[in-house]
Design a protein around this nucleic acid. Structure first.
Lengths: 337, 337
DNA sequence: ATAGGTTGTCGAAGCGCTTCGACAGCGAAA
DNA sequence: TTTCGCTGTCGAAGCGCTTCGACAACCTAT
């Protein structure tokens, strides 16, 4: 393995000079710089990460804690993770992948050992066990998701409240009066991740203003669960003409069931999905949807973190504004006459 | 930050003794060990990762290179990644997440800098650019996937050849004579990842032995693409009664289309999917499927790697035997009489 | 010509750990 | 009793890098 010292010798300068060429923290004559860079090339030198971390107490690594369970939005998680990794590399950081499994211990371990300079947490619960630790430590962190108390924390998330409101507005505008929300699996609510509730709150309060009647039903993914849920909804509110679906794996079953029952989309009923664009465009009906901006969330989180690591950067809650894209699954409410 | 030296002082022993307690590389009296462990507890000591890496030239990190693109099997990739992270932690390793984006440079960077002790590559192409580098370096690595030339490499993958054969056998046994394979998107074939071809080869050669007629059509995911593909298939081979689907995002569209055309599953046509169990059980028909054992692949890869890091462990190709689970989407071929 | 400020380079210290060789203390074998 | 071999502990060296202070060499303003 090639070391700094060898590069220095090869270039006929001191080790510290090579270090300064690499870091740019002191000015170096063009001549020297060039000689050093050439030696680096020729010898194929790569700085040793451990030595660097030890000497500078900076690892240039960002830890990313992803949820262990895969009962929900896996593609979104993956997309966020990849966006985080890509953005981090642009800024010269690598990404350490932690699973939620270890819980708070992972936070202790990483901050304690200097393995990473900062961390990003996904799948944050309203009253997450890891938050007190993050508030104590002086290691920067960013949450993807919104806990109950955000004081002293930096968070990035889609504005789910506005998302719910947006869905209500769109359906109201089209003349729908009775709408149903197909929510996440009950387990998601029990886990208190918050985003499902926020969507619902936003949707309900806007619906109240607009005079919509709302029925909310959680729903496991899959065909069978969706069949039961749909039957219940139509039983209780036969006049329902608008659906908002927040559970990705309930979308296709819902469309199939509606088709089967002879309810045309969008002529008889309208459907809005809250899901990644890819899902919306690949469904059997091109879905009007509010996108979950996974890439943007990942990129944002990293950029906030880098800002903090560089000294500027405040604690702040960034809520990304939702965007509703109209496709082929929503239309005017059927006339009741 | 608490250091080894502070722990040593607190426990009234030398630094090296603390180190030996931690590593267990020399015998320590029960008494001393206990005092040291208590000091570690009380002070909340965590060894500094950088210092450790520098002194021991072991980072205790495994690099995992995931594909950047998300046009294919994202949930599988995620599941593998999580299995890798979980298994690695069990063995005391952390996982560094690299995207395929950097390509061979990432391999150079990681091996050169000692950032990681070993690496796992996913989404390996038949003639992957990264392979020569892996063969040169003495850093252990494991591939998930199978390149054309596996000499000097360790690989883990599902036995896709056997998977194809298994599908053919199951359909033949049920009396089907004309079968169609709905393959991955054309881009997947162009990329030469191999697994799709291997499936097809296995299926074709077994079909020949069993007297099945096979039609193969690649297919982008989604409803529209599937509609076109299905129409072409039924046009060319109206007698087709068996389908093997290897593209996850074509599964649900296919079922919807068949339903729409009045072809009952499994009475009129049988469908086998090659996909994770979760997809198979959540589809609108519970699908007979060959599972993609993502977790097992991830776990296996890590264990191979650890064995290599520990000195035992050979270069070896591990092909996981496929398992076909019969569910509700396959049945006897309709009688032709 | 001299004082003061820049610019470019170097040497040395030190980051926190692992590991090697040394060695004190002790019981077992001679 | 002496010798040998353990066992348990310590001190010191060193891993490869960053960074601080020092200091020539030069330029500019006096």
């Amino acid at each position: 393995m090639v070391t700094l010292a060898e590069v220095a010798q090869h270039a006929g300068v001191s080790a510290s000079t090579v270090s300064y060429v690499l870091s740019g923290k002191r000015s170096i004559s063009a001549n020297t710089r060039q000689r050093v860079e050439q030696s680096i090339q020729e010898l194929g030198y790569h700085p040793n990460a451990g030595a660097r971390a030890l000497a500078s107490s900076r690892s240039n690594i960002i830890a990313l804690m992803v949820p262990l369970r895969t009962d929900m939005y896996v593609p979104v998680m993956m997309e966020i993770a990849i966006a985080v990794a890509t953005t981090a590399r642009i800024h010269g950081y690598d990404v350490l992948l932690l699973t939620g499994e270890e819980g708070p211990d992972a936070v202790r371990r990483v901050t304690g050992s200097g393995l990473a300079d900062a961390m990003i947490l996904m799948d944050v619960e309203l009253d997450d066990e890891r938050l007190p630790l993050l508030r104590e430590t002086d290691q920067p962190s960013v949450l993807i998701g919104l806990p109950a108390d955000t004081s002293g924390l930096t968070c990035v998330d889609l504005d789910f409240g506005a998302t719910g409101a947006l869905c209500a507005e769109h359906l109201a505008m089209l003349g729908h009066r009775d709408i149903a929300v197909i929510g996440e699996a009950p387990a998601v609510y029990e886990r208190h991740t918050g985003f499902a509730e926020r969507t619902l709150d936003g949707l309900r309060s806007r619906s109240r203003e607009l005079g919509l009647r709302v029925l909310h039903r959680p729903c496991e993914g899959g065909y069978d669960a969706m069949a039961v849920t749909l039957a219940r909804i139509l039983d209780e509110r036969p006049a329902t003409t608008g659906f908002v679906v927040q559970n990705e794996s309930a979308v296709e079953p819902l469309l199939a069931l509606l088709r089967q029952q002879g309810r045309a989309v969008p002529e008889d009923v309208s459907v809005i999905a809250i899901c990644p664009d890819q899902v919306a465009t690949q469904a059997s009906v091109r879905l009007t949807s509010v996108a979950i901006p996974a890439q943007e969330m990942g990129r944002h989180a990293v950029e906030q973190l880098i800002a903090k690591l560089d000294g500027h950067g405040e604690d702040e809650v960034v809520l990304i504004a939702p965007e509703l894209t109209v496709r082929a699954s929503t239309g005017p409410a059927p006339s009741t006459s």
